[in-house]
């Protein structure tokens, strides 16, 4: 990997692969998480999200490929800068929230004892007092899991389904909290979630994994373009059709994503007229329809549902 290029990435993987038996749980993944990104990691259950996150966090050893963290290949050293919540938050149910954090404060060698109270305050669990974690709601447990991930003031957070089990209010709070962390503390994040609508409210970049393969990576800006409403045309003579659109109809906002497909993003109310002009020029229109997806259906299509 080129040095100057790798500097802007918090995480880069090269052909990262994990094989369980005969199955490639993660297959030659090249992932790029830029500094400051909130990277929405999307995929169905069993697509390989958690396995990939575990490899990055050092819980699972890759079979092939490379991981680069903060521009360095010495990932053992760099992993100290990672906070993670992967699958279930690792909590001691017989202890209070404060005692749980105390366990990790000591393990991480944090000398400032105030860190425990400050983190509980930050995550909204300061008033749980002597209540044992076993009696916490799912949402409170998730928050405590995030608190543990934050305890060491990480530069990079890996959160696997962090809003699992939260009620709408809880989801809203965690979303705001993560956005604030990203903006104010400049913490880069990978977040996987099934709640795609929620993810799309905070993510600045996306990666889509399907059957262990990273099928797409794009920014939030690109996504909005991809989901834009358009007139989709399937024609037999694309070049002639493009000429007519540009020269005769003065249409500038269109693209040709596939060999016989044209997407027109303007004059959507004039679709009939556009079709008429193309037919007059002898172009056969095989399909013509107004397209455009909400984010959720776009993701569903990409992840293979």
């Amino acid at each position: 990997m080129k040095q100057e290029e790798s500097g802007k990435y918090v995480l880069r993987t090269e052909n990262l692969t994990k094989i369980y038996g005969s199955q490639r749980a993660v297959n030659a993944v090249n992932m790029h998480v830029k500094k400051g990104d909130i990277y929405g990691f999307i995929g169905k259950n069993g697509a390989g999200k958690s396995t990939l996150m575990k490899m990055v966090a050092g819980l699972v050893a890759p079979d092939e490929g490379k991981i680069e963290l903060f521009g360095s290949s010495d990932i053992e050293k760099q992993r100290i800068r990672i906070g993670s919540l992967i699958e279930a938050p690792g909590l001691y149910h017989g202890m209070t929230a404060k005692e749980n954090l105390e366990v990790y404060r000591r393990a991480y060698g944090i000398t400032d004892r105030n860190v425990v109270n400050d983190t509980l305050d930050l995550i909204g669990l300061k008033d749980t007092g002597k209540k044992k974690v076993g009696k916490f709601s799912m949402g409170m447990k998730q928050r405590l899991g995030i608190a543990i991930a934050l305890l060491k003031s990480p530069d990079f957070l890996i959160l696997d389904e962090p809003i699992n089990g939260l009620d709408p209010m809880g989801i809203h709070e965690i979303r705001d909290f993560l956005t604030t962390l990203n903006r104010e503390k400049n913490i880069t994040m990978i977040i996987s979630s099934h709640i795609l609508g929620e993810l799309s409210k905070i993510a600045t970049a996306y990666g889509i994994i399907r059957n262990g393969e990273l099928v797409d990576e794009f920014s939030a800006k690109e996504l909005s373009v991809r989901c834009r409403r358009c007139q989709k045309l399937v024609v037999d003579q694309v070049e002639r059709a493009v000429n007519i659109l540009e020269e005769e109809l003065q249409i500038k906002e269109f693209d040709v994503p596939e060999a016989s497909v044209i997407r027109i993003y303007e004059h959507l109310d004039d679709a009939k007229e556009i079709n008429h002009r193309l037919m007059l020029a002898g172009i056969e229109i095989k399909e013509s329809y107004l397209a455009g997806q909400d984010l959720e259906s776009y993701f569903m299509e990409r992840i293979g549902d």
Partner: peptide, 11 residues
């Protein structure tokens, strides 16, 4: 409990 994940990979 999964707590072991919070000790591994922490330096």
């Amino acid at each position: 409990s999964g707590a072991i994940k919070n000790f591994v990979g922490k330096g």
